[in-house]
Design a protein around this nucleic acid. Sequence first.
RNA 1: GCUGGGAUGGCGGAAUUGGUAGACGCGCGGGACUUAAAAUCCCGUAUCAGCAAUGAUGUGAGGGUUCGAUUCCCUCUCUCAGCACCA
Length: 811
Amino acid sequence: MPKYQASEIEKKWQEDWEKNQVYQTNGQNHSKPKFYVLDMFPYPSGSGLHVGHPKGYIATDIVSRMKRQKGFNVLHPMGFDAFGLPAENFALKNKVHPRTSTEKNIETYIRQLKLIGLDYDWDRMISTIDPDYYKWTQWIFIKFFEKGLAYESFEPINWCPVDKTGLANEDLENGKCERCGSLVEKKLMRQWVLRITDYADRLLEDIEKLTDWEPSIKEMQRNWIGRSEGAEVNFQVKGFNQIIKIFTTRIDTIFGCTYVVLAPENKLIEELKSQISNWVEVNKYIEAVKNKSDLERTDLNKDKTGIILEGIKAINPFNNQEVDIYIADYVLNSYGTGAVMAVPAHDERDFEFATKYKIEIKKSIEAENQNNLPMTLDGILVDSGEFSGLKSTEARNEMIKWLEDRELGSRKINYKIKDWVFSRQRYWGEPIPIIHCESCGPVAVPEKDLPVRLPEVDQYEPSGTGESPLANMTDWVNTKCPKCGGTGKRETNTMPQWAGSSWYYLRFIDPKNDQQLVNKELEKFWSPVDLYVGGAEHATRHLIYARFWHKFLFDIGVVNHDEPFIRLHHVGIIMGEDERKMSKRWGNVINPDDVIKEFGADSLRLYEMFMGPFEQSVSWNTKGLVGIKRFLDKVFDEVNKVAQGNLEFDEKDLKKALNILHKTIQKVEKDIEEFKFNTAVSQMMIFVNSVMTLKLGDEARIIWKDFLKILAPFAPHLSEELWHLLGEKDFIVLSSWPKVNEEYLMDDTLNIVIQVNGKLREEIEVDKDLTEKEIIELAKKQENVTKFLDQKQIIKEIYVKGKLISFVVKD
RNA sequence: GCUGGGAUGGCGGAAUUGGUAGACGCGCGGGACUUAAAAUCCCGUAUCAGCAAUGAUGUGAGGGUUCGAUUCCCUCUCUCAGCACCA
């Protein structure tokens, strides 16, 4: 008998599949239903793939193969997100041009991915660094610019001193740079910003439409967008024209307001400067705050600090009471109006501050059994003038109406999400297609001049001055204004890593189109992406950005749907054998190439699916692979026996085999749909363990062929080999998925469990045609049941059809 | 602090309209084959008592609903992830 030689088999079929182009998507065939399944494309780092990376790719591969077998026109493409910091830093470190190193890395990735036997249509591969690709990234930017959604801003932004670039809010983790972990500084600089806040409401509301997304990811997005409903209230500065606008979600507590706080960066302070009698001290405080890092400022454990503005008072519009004005760094300038009304009795932060600075604490809400201050729950208003006695919820509506009638404020919704800081002071990114003209201001590069190619430079290290390395390229920078023909300078900032990935899924539909971003008819057929799989770390980054761009493209008529991804699954991380994240630093990285060499790609695929629930993180365990290899060995040996023929036959066994086969088809199909790959694999093991003991004669060929068809998405190479061994000429990967025959699913007998007072006492096997009455009578006769029924009164008999009988007895 | 998950044998994990807890795999114990080893095959494997039949206990802790709870409700502990002075 031959032995299962994975590497030979895999090489042979990979070459054969490629030669016959079995995985090429026919983009024009719209007669079959479509299925677009997509992996979050990787950025090709220098260290290549480790075994954790392909887990999600294997899952989508299995789904796409099953869908193909079920008659769908499948689109399953792969590409590379090749711009951005990691690629550039790798290149800097290794003293090569980023393009050279990136292209080399892409080659490595493709080689590794091909070894795994994934069914990508490589003809559609895209790379974000390809000028034919980033032409359209730039085109989208210009559309944003034309619609006023891309604008220049001069506000202070997050600046990473190590990576030497500005960052978006989404690029931070606990006040540190998500890439390199350095403390982020505030830096005042010119930057391009995308007005994502204009879409905040739609991004939030449409989460409801994403019924096939995991709830956890949706919740993260909701929190990130952070909508809060409240009111803006005008507090006039006594005796002056200036108005302090504050934002609050708890206007019902306003009669308890005893002071007002401005953020140290609030521009109003400069206007009030001349009225502030202790300006010297105040200015000192503001300077001190400026020198603090963001992390110091936002440290929750620290004491709250602030300073009173002497000489001025604010007036509470509801009761005309004069209250003190403070500045304090616990108020953020970047949220709401950068000013708050402080109600120490009903807000923890205000309470802490008021206690420290001995400010009056005035109660205006009462709730049952809540006597301790601060009391932050809703309740009944007290000492609140005409609003006393109202419930908080009612009061909020009434009081906003009151304000609006008098034009002293209005209903207001605020979001935590900030506009997207979109420029990077780095070399390796898409140039922002803008020309600055002395007379016209910033002007978009005309569409016919796209792409604006990233020039080749010798020095691409970041300058650290806030200028992009491109600024030194005078030949490139100096140009003509497309509008007036006068002298112009090119924008030298580049786009962030996230730009290219915010729309790439559209390009796969029509990757070679140089006339438009995507053909609208093709887009209509293929969009949206039916299944999208990738890491959970993208929940509030890539996935929000991509939804934002997609909605914009929808608004300008480029796409036909307003959400890009119908169904989303996140893949759980594979940890090292030491239960730490796989990393060079820990020396626990496992390379798929090595695993494939030793066990074969099919074993790797099956093992990664069998390890545990798909979404959960699990540790790698090489011993676990042994079990999978044994399983595939068994399949190989059994089918070889079947191929040799001369097997014994038993009619009863055939019935059993058909029963287990069809149960397996049904379960595997359902499990793949539900992303429960681990139980699909166990079911296939159950099938093999039981069928290998049966006498099936020549019928075995039929049984095993059907089984190979459902094994094929998991272990395509082995299945293909054995399929041909059983005499088939066409490819199994193009065969049709077996249909479940209900007739074979029926069992002849039922196992009925008998309980007495809820305790399991006996199990009986009965004919499936017996009536309820007959089964109960039979149950009562069982020795181990009579034992417990004896001398007792049966007060209840419960029968769960086909499953269980429960007697309830009393002495 | 807020939000969302999770806790089941020695290990990874199964079990959903409340109905046989521990499927499948690893590991471990015993046996067969072998001069021997590996591989392979067979049997066993939650805990306690028992030769066994069987009985008792058992799904993070405590309570509740129910004939019956890993599953539903209440209280709590631990843990993972995301956000975090967002007014």
